[in-house]
Amino acid sequence: MEFPAYLATMPMHAITEIHGEPGLLARFRLEVEAFDEPARARLTEALDLAADLHRDDRRVREPYLNHLLRVAIRLMHHYQVRDVDVIVAALLHDAVEDHPAELAALAPDGSAAGTDVTAAALVALSARFGARVARLVGAVTNPAFDPERDRNAQYRDHVAASLESEPWARVIKVSDFTDNGVGVIHTVGPKVARSAAKYRPLVPVFRDLIARPDTPLSPPVKQHIFAQLDLAEERFSAILDQPDPARRP
C-alpha cells in the first residue's frame, strides 16, 4: 500500500482515520528506523506479540492495536524516547491486564508454578523481554478493584500510587492517557461521557507527575505534554459541563 511522503508528520488520529492500522504500522516502522538493528528486532518482536494477543480486540470503531501503536509512536516522536525497554513496555502495556492467561502460557516451563495468572504473565514477559519491561508493564496494569467502592476513584488512587516510584512508567501512562483523553473526541456513543468522567480528575495527577524533576523528559517535551493535558481538560469540560436542555432558565 502506498502512503504519502508526509506520513511522518501527520497527526496520529488523522493517520488512523485516513489509513487505518496499515498507516499506523507504516508510521511505526518509520519511527523505528532511527534505532539500530538489535533494537529494531526487539521492537518488532514486541509489536508482533501485541498484535497476536490483541488480534480480536476492538476499541469501539477500530482494532485495539491502533491504540498501542499510537502510544508507542507518541513516545518515540513527540517524547523523543530512545529507551527500547520503555517502548516495548508501551506496546505491551495492556497485555497483562487484558490477556494474562495467554501470556502466562508463554512462561518457561515451571517458572510460574504456584503464582496467580497475572504474576505468571509478568514472569513470561520478564523471560522474553527482561525484568525491567515486566516491571514497567506491571506498574501500568490495573489491579482487581473492590466492587463495593467507586471504580473510577480506585483507578485514580492506583495510578497515583503505582507511578510514584516508577518515572518511566509515568511516561508510558501519560502517552496512554493522552490517547484516551485528548482522543476522546474520536470516540462515539455512551463511552464518550464515561471516559471523560473517568479521566478528567486525573489531569492534575499527571501534571504533578510529569513536572517532577525525576520524570526523565526534556523541558520542551514536558511543555508539550502540559499543552496536551490542557487540551484534554478542555474536551472533558465540553463533554461534561454542557447545560441540561431539560432545565429552563
Rank of each mutant, 00 (worst) to 15 (best):
E2K: 09
Y6L: 00
A8M: 00
T9R: 07
A14I: 10
A14C: 05
G23K: 01
L24W: 04
L24G: 00
L25Q: 08
L25V: 11
A26N: 08
R27N: 10
R27P: 00
R29G: 06
E33H: 09
D36H: 15
E37C: 08
L43K: 13
E45Q: 15
A46K: 07
A46L: 06
D48S: 14
D52A: 15
D57Y: 12
D57Q: 13
D57E: 14
V60S: 13
R61S: 14
L68G: 05
R74S: 06
M76K: 02
Y79D: 05
Q80E: 14
D83Y: 07
I87F: 02
A90Y: 07
D94S: 11
D98F: 13
H99N: 10
P100N: 09
P100I: 13
E102Q: 15
G114F: 09
T115M: 15
D116H: 05
V117K: 06
A120D: 07
V123M: 10
A124K: 03
R132F: 00
R135V: 09
G138Q: 06
V140C: 09
V140E: 02
N142I: 00
P147W: 11
D150S: 01
A153T: 15
Q154G: 03
A169I: 07
V174E: 14
V174H: 07
D176V: 14
D179M: 06
N180E: 12
I185P: 01
I185K: 12
V188S: 13
G189F: 11
V192H: 02
S195M: 14
K198R: 15
D208K: 09
S218W: 07
Q223C: 01
Q228M: 13
L229R: 12
L229Q: 04
D230V: 09
E233S: 12
S237N: 14
I239E: 13
Q242W: 03
P243D: 11
A246H: 06
A246D: 09
R247G: 02
